[in-house]
Design a protein around this nucleic acid. Structure first.
Length: 308
DNA sequence: TATATTGTTACACC
DNA sequence: TGGTGTAACAATAT
């Protein structure tokens, strides 16, 4: 499930691989995944062929200047007065195929992190948008669940993008201090700390995996109400945000379900999880059995002994 | 076949 | 008004 470290991994790789490449052609196989304009896609089912044509037309002939992100949103900066935004949601994937590399490897990918997953050739049945570059390389946008999306926004409308107006601070930026974190939590005093960490208005980029891991390392139970945390505990939580996310980036993300890097390979952060996905297994710190509970409809795993 | 899955939004309630 | 909790939604694999 792509969270900040996974998105950052994709961004870093795409920025390197796509920079300077020129889009020759765009093919859209699932109209509902593409849209135009700054607003959140509300009537996603109403995406017309006209929208699809416009989407392709706007991007054709453009060069990729850079790829960056805000929260979990990918930002493709292209030449000309527009930008493409992309969100991977649960199961989105960007796979880049160099023309020469594709020939060499036979372009076979195992796009689920499971030994039983079949090897597939791209485009697969889950490929919904393909970008063909003038040099023969290709970028595939896959999404098993089809919750992800691509949006073309005029640069002058970027300030109107709803997500960007509502997103809280970037956790890895220097400006994200304990004071900023504590201030944002003042509006979310009565909710479980785990849900506060996952609240994009408090801080962006943290989802189910990393909130569980951060709280484990901070020795705080996920269901503790924000206002029940002593200053020392709150500082411990804050103190784990950056290092845990940085560890995730170092290992190129967690491939828990469908997340893959832009070469189709898996990230290895999953091997370094202490609690996420380890329900009923022994805690790596003390041997106690990891338990799980539902918070805000989400599964949360923790060590009942080390987290208080 | 019913269920689990997640980021995000919608909405009722206090 | 706005914080809170719950449900809903997208679509698919298992």
């Amino acid at each position: 499930m792509p969270e900040l470290p996974e998105v950052q991994t994709v961004v870093t790789e795409l920025n390197k691989k796509l920079k300077g490449r020129k889009i020759k052609r765009v093919a859209v196989f699932a109209a509902k995944l593409v849209s135009l304009g700054p607003n959140t896609v509300s009537n996603i089912r109403d995406v017309t062929q006209k929208t699809v044509d416009q989407f392709c037309k706007l991007l054709t002939g453009r060069k990729i200047v850079s790829v960056s992100r805000r929260g979990k949103m990918l930002i493709f900066n292209v030449d000309g007065p527009l930008t493409m935004l992309a969100h991977l949601k649960m199961t989105g994937q960007f796979i880049f195929e160099d023309k020469i590399l594709a020939k060499k490897t036979g372009s076979q990918y195992r796009l689920l992190n499971k030994p039983t997953a079949p090897l597939v050739k791209l485009p697969s049945k889950h490929t919904h948008v393909v970008f063909y570059f003038t040099d023969g390389s290709t970028l595939y946008f896959n999404d098993i669940r089809k919750f992800g999306y691509l949006r073309v926004v005029l640069d002058k409308e970027m300030g109107d993008v709803k997500e960007f107006r509502e997103y809280g601070p970037e956790p890895l930026e220097k400006s994200f201090t304990f004071e900023v974190f504590a201030e944002a939590l003042k509006k979310r005093k009565a909710i479980p700390i785990k849900l506060a960490l996952m609240d994009t208005k408090v801080v962006v980029g943290i989802g189910n995996i990393y909130s569980d891991e951060i709280l484990y390392h901070a020795h705080v139970r996920p269901d503790r109400r924000v206002d029940s945390l002593k200053p020392k505990e709150l500082k411990a939580v804050f103190g784990q945000i950056k290092p845990v996310l940085q560890t995730g980036i170092k290992y190129k993300g967690s491939s828990v379900g469908d997340f893959v890097r832009t070469d189709g390979k898996w990230g290895s952060m999953g091997k370094h999880h202490f609690v996420y996905g380890r329900k009923k297994q022994a805690c790596l710190g003390c041997g106690t059995m990891i338990v799980s509970m539902k918070l805000g409809g989400r599964t949360s795993s923790f060590c009942p002994r080390e987290q208080v």
